[in-house]
Design a protein around this nucleic acid. Structure first.
Length: 677
DNA sequence: GCAATGAGCGTC
DNA sequence: ACGCTCATTGCT
């Protein structure tokens, strides 16, 4: 390192003296360019020596302009052999970036072929000076170890909590039993970590879940130690709570997606609940997923990890299969005792209800009977309908098996656009673009295709007619009669234990006091026919979410699902066997070469930009290119590699992005790993 | 032969 | 968005 005075510009003002101790500051500058995705060294003037602590926010001069930065570390010397600039100023001595989160941000950026600045923007909230000036509270003492009776119902449940109490890095995949008070069990796990003097972090899909779990945690560890972090707080409240966590006062953090980066001090337990919910996938670059970030954190910190839910994702199944995590699943007797009675009715084989009103509501007789019984009992009935709107998809005209591409097994769809001379355009693969002119169903040999269309959610009105005199309540997009796209209709948190029909879209199911008497899961075949990769898994997850809110069979609880009982997700629902379903789903994806059995990157941009990026990328030799397919303004290419080459794929794409930004290439390419095609 | 001016580029 | 380099220009 050479320390030279800056010439002319500030010569007259005199040079500040560098700090006597550790005069070099390693700074991460807020410049979102791939080829600058590394730290830069600055000199600390003696006047800032005390404030310029690792983790603090700074302003520095970078390529002539003032930019924000985060000070990563103080060093005795730099390995940069040019001249060093002095720090502009220390914005605040608050060490907002912990060493753990800094390491995590680098690892997450690398995994997703993204920039560390982008991850840091997700991890460190904007400063709120007034809040920062408030006197910090004192950290409460660790709570006593809670009772964990709820976990004793599960084989290895108590063993997992013992490991958490002992500070061992246990990893588990947990499927909660039907009707389980899972917020209580998550709180017990978090309080166990807290009782050992460690932090805990629980990430859930939406704020209703956060509220329930936070309430349960508060009961066990107290008001001060339990912190809820959700996106709907204003900037001040959000920063106040976040700072309390960073300062080690809030030890048990319960939050939605962005909380995955919460700077919990000395984390002993990391939990993701319902990891199949797509709310866990961050929508901003580099598009990290909560489950993957927490796995990364568990690796780096030695914290225990719990990947939990009613259903099990293919990704969680992979954790079990690889031996990285062990499973925590209730035994059959526990499940049988807790589950409602579940009946499947194929949608073309049902016995129509006798009365016209029920017929028009598209309800099979069994469903009508189940609902009437529950209502007669004074219990609410849950009616789950798929989201409104239309989804263009193709299925076999005879057996309704979804139509897939022969080359890459991607979903076939009719391309948008008008018919030409009265002839419809032929179907094409949404992944690789191959046109299918002579479709033959692999399941039944039929050559016919049918469009699969999910109709608007008109169920609420029809149900009102089918069950005269019964109050109908709605939750989610089904509500308000606002048509298929009334997506912002009110979502109810709970409904009382009274006779009512509760019509909801998936994800908006209110909890019922004492449980629902029955649940009707409608239009299942349409949900299963959706295009995307996760359709089967997602449908099953939604069904389980609804069915878990229903009373046990012994208390009269019934679930009627309108779908063919031969289908795997229907079987898995009837038997309440999420582990089996995950194994079947993962096997199918392995067979077809789908994630998570492989790793995929999606490249979006203009054809020229994508070609340029691919030209600059030294992809692993195993890489397969699929596409291009039209996407938005430009097009999309997919790159597929075996799992083992995921890291090589990410680093190749990051390096290629760096080449392009260094060259000031005009059109950007969006790189998204693990994108759902 | 050499200052004056401008475009391009890296960025501590 | 600054200050560095290196090219081109224009004048003696």
């Amino acid at each position: 390192m050479t320390v030279r005075a800056r010439p002319s510009a500030s010569a007259g003002l005199g040079q500040p003296a560098p700090a006597a101790e550790l005069p070099v500051a390693r700074v991460w500058v807020d410049v979102p360019l791939s080829h600058l995705d590394r730290p830069f060294d600055y000199l600390v003037p003696e006047s800032m020596a005390a404030d310029a602590v690792p983790g603090c926010r700074v302003r520095v001069r970078f390529a002539g302009r003032q930019v924000h930065g985060l000070l990563l570390d103080r060093l005795a010397e730099s390995d940069h052999d040019g001249r060093l600039e002095f720090l502009g100023r220390v914005v605040s001595p608050e060490p907002v970036l912990s060493a753990e989160v800094a390491t995590l941000a680098r690892a997450v950026a690398d995994r997703y072929a993204g920039l560390m600045v982008d991850v840091l923007r997700l991890a460190v909230p904007p400063r709120h000076a007034k809040v920062e000036a408030e006197p910090p509270g004192a950290p409460p003492p660790p709570p006593p170890r809670p009772g964990t009776a709820g976990w004793a119902r599960y084989p290895r449940g108590t063993a997992f909590l013992d490991a958490v109490a002992a500070g061992r890095p246990a990893h588990a995949v947990w499927q909660a039993a039907p009707g389980e008070d899972w917020p209580r069990l998550l709180a017990e796990a978090a309080a166990t970590a807290a009782s050992a003097g460690r932090g805990a972090l629980i990430v859930l899909p939406d704020y209703r879940d956060v509220e329930r779990v936070h309430a349960a945690c508060t009961a066990l560890v107290g008001e001060t130690a339990a912190v809820a972090l959700t996106a709907d707080l204003g900037p001040a409240r959000r920063y106040r709570r976040w700072l309390a966590v960073r300062r080690g006062i809030g030890r048990v953090v319960v939050g939605t997606r962005a909380a995955m980066f919460a700077p919990v001090a000395d984390p002993g337990l990391l939990v993701v609940w319902d990891d199949g919910d797509d709310l866990h996938a961050e929508q901003r670059a580099p598009y990290p997923h909560v489950r993957e970030v927490l796995i990364q954190r568990a690796h780096a910190t030695g914290a225990a990890l719990l990947c939990a839910g009613l259903a099990r994702t293919s990704e969680a199944q992979l954790l079990v299969d690889s031996g990285w995590a062990h499973e925590i699943v209730a035994g059959r007797p526990v499940v049988r005792q807790a589950a409602p009675r579940i009946t499947a009715i194929g949608d073309d084989a049902w016995e129509q209800a006798r009365d016209q009103a029920a017929r028009s509501a598209r309800l099979p007789l069994v469903a009508v009977d189940a609902a009437r019984e529950a209502l007669a009992d004074g219990a609410p009935v849950l009616v789950q309908v798929p989201r409104g709107g239309y989804v263009p998809a193709l299925a076999c005209g005879q057996c309704r098996t979804r139509a897939r591409c022969r080359r890459c097994a991607g979903p076939l769809a009719l391309p948008a656009g008008e018919v030409r001379d009265g002839d419809p355009r032929p179907p094409a693969c949404r992944w690789c673009g191959v046109v299918e002119t002579s479709f033959v169903c692999p399941a039944c040999g039929s050559r016919r295709l049918r469009a699969v269309v999910v109709g608007a959610a008109r169920t609420a009105e029809e149900l009102g007619r089918a069950f005269p005199g019964v109050p109908v309540r709605t939750s989610g997009a089904a509500g308000g009669g606002g048509g298929p796209d009334a997506a912002d209709a009110a979502v109810l948190s709970s409904v009382p234990a009274r006779r009512a029909l509760v019509v909801c879209t998936p994800g908006a199911e209110p909890v019922a006091e004492g449980g629902y008497g029955a649940a009707l899961l409608l239009d299942g075949w349409a949900m299963l026919a959706r295009l995307d990769l996760r359709a089967t898994e997602e449908t099953y997850r939604r069904w389980l979410t609804a069915a878990a809110l229903v009373r046990p069979a012994a208390a009269g609880g019934r679930v009627v699902v309108v779908a063919d009982s031969a289908l795997a997700p229907v079987q898995a629902l009837i038997r309440w066997d999420p582990a089996w379903h995950a194994a079947v789903e993962l096997a199918a994806r392995t067979e077809l070469g789908f994630p998570p059995a492989v790793r995929m990157a999606a490249l979006d941009g203009t054809p020229a930009a994508i070609a340029d990026l691919l030209g600059a990328a030294r992809l692993p030799p195993t890489a397969e290119l699929l596409g291009p397919v039209p996407a938005g303004d430009g097009e999309r290419m997919l790159v597929r590699v075996p799992r083992a080459d995921g890291r090589a794929l990410a680093s190749a794409l990051a390096a290629a992005q760096a080449v392009r930004t260094a060259r000031k290439a005009a059109d950007p390419v969006r790189v998204q790993l693990d994108a759902t095609p």
